[in-house]
Design a binder for these strands. Structure first.
Lengths: 182, 182
DNA sequence: CGTTGGTGTTACCGGTCAGTAACTATCTGG
DNA sequence: CCAGATAGTTACTGACCGGTAACACCAACG
């Protein structure tokens, strides 16, 4: 199943077949179909697992800098920047959303919910960090990250996504309005 | 061929077949294969046509506000915001890049070049508009737009992408450094 | 020992899709 | 009026893919 995550991510959910996944995982199609009703079902469960992992990162942030929302915010930026660098292939959620043009695919509901949760977490963090316009800052940080993950795939590693960290810091410094010297 | 653009955009390049395209265009497969060597070829030519169209928009910007880079920049934001609203399905280029996981697909070269050109155009415009940090501002505007186009597909019309215009204006007001009152 | 539950294997079905062949119809220009 | 190019039609191939059926295998557990 971890294998499924990797292969879906690497080749896209539409670009890889069930057989290739099971083969790579050292098993076979039948075994898989005894655990998952269909390919769509497998996709959804993969995304849900990814969602759980990403939620855990928020807890980790809190653990690493307990009671220090400002440091958590900077750590969030650091995490995000680190994700983008390297030979990455974008966000599992966003990529899947693009691939699944069908709007009523069950995976879409999962993706939408997860994205909304992340935005809300981020907005709350911005507020706790004392930013003047936490909602605006959260939107900007979110879109910058989303854009960087996409740009990474269109323009490669050297493109604008390489400057994400600086942009994000600029946002919380100027837009968020920490009061010049915070 | 315009039909091909629409269908690729609507259902994704991997989600629609040659036959469906030709049928929708009121013709048939053979005729298409007399003009294009393969489906990949068709994809590439569609993207190139999309690229030409997008370049024309820059000329239009210049024509609408001749010699007024600041107005051109605001008009660019307006155009972008308008594109995102409505029942849009993201950027043809970026979506295709996500779908075509294969890195050495011929379409990838086209996409990369187009995206780089747009970034450079935008950076030059930011410089002409007198922004203090035109490169940084261009990167931010570009990523915000890219993020908005993706977020539009993950979170729907009501998500952060709806606030794109305000964010973009915020960027050129604070980050670009027009000097407080420009 | 036997049974039961999970796993592996093979083969298959039905469908879709990219791309081709061969033939016919239509329109053009000379 | 004829020749040549272009477009339409039908049918086909070969490959892939999602999903299923039937059956053999192997373990644990009574």
């Amino acid at each position: 199943m971890t294998t499924a995550r990797e292969m879906f991510h690497q080749h896209g959910v539409r670009g890889v077949g069930i057989e290739a996944i099971t083969e790579a995982a050292g098993t076979n199609k039948m075994t898989l179909y005894r655990h998952f009703a269909s390919k769509d079902d497998l996709i959804v469960e993969c995304l849900q697992r990814a969602a759980k992992e990403s939620y855990l990162k928020w807890d980790e942030l809190e653990r690493q800098h307990p009671g220090d929302p400002k440091a958590q915010l900077h750590a969030w930026i650091g995490n995000a920047a680190e994700c983008i660098s390297g030979d990455w292939r974008g966000c599992e959620m966003a990529n899947t959303a693009v691939e699944l043009a069908d709007d009523d695919h069950p995976a879409k509901r999962v993706i939408e919910e997860v994205k909304k949760n992340h935005r809300n977490f981020l907005a709350k963090l911005c507020a706790r960090a004392g930013l003047d316009q936490p909602e605006l800052a959260a939107d900007m940080l979110g879109l910058l990250l989303e854009g960087a993950r996409i740009s990474r795939q269109s323009e490669g590693q050297e493109g604008p996504s390489a400057r994400f960290k600086r942009m994000a810091e600029e946002v919380i410094a100027t837009v968020g309005g920490l009061g010049e010297k915070a």
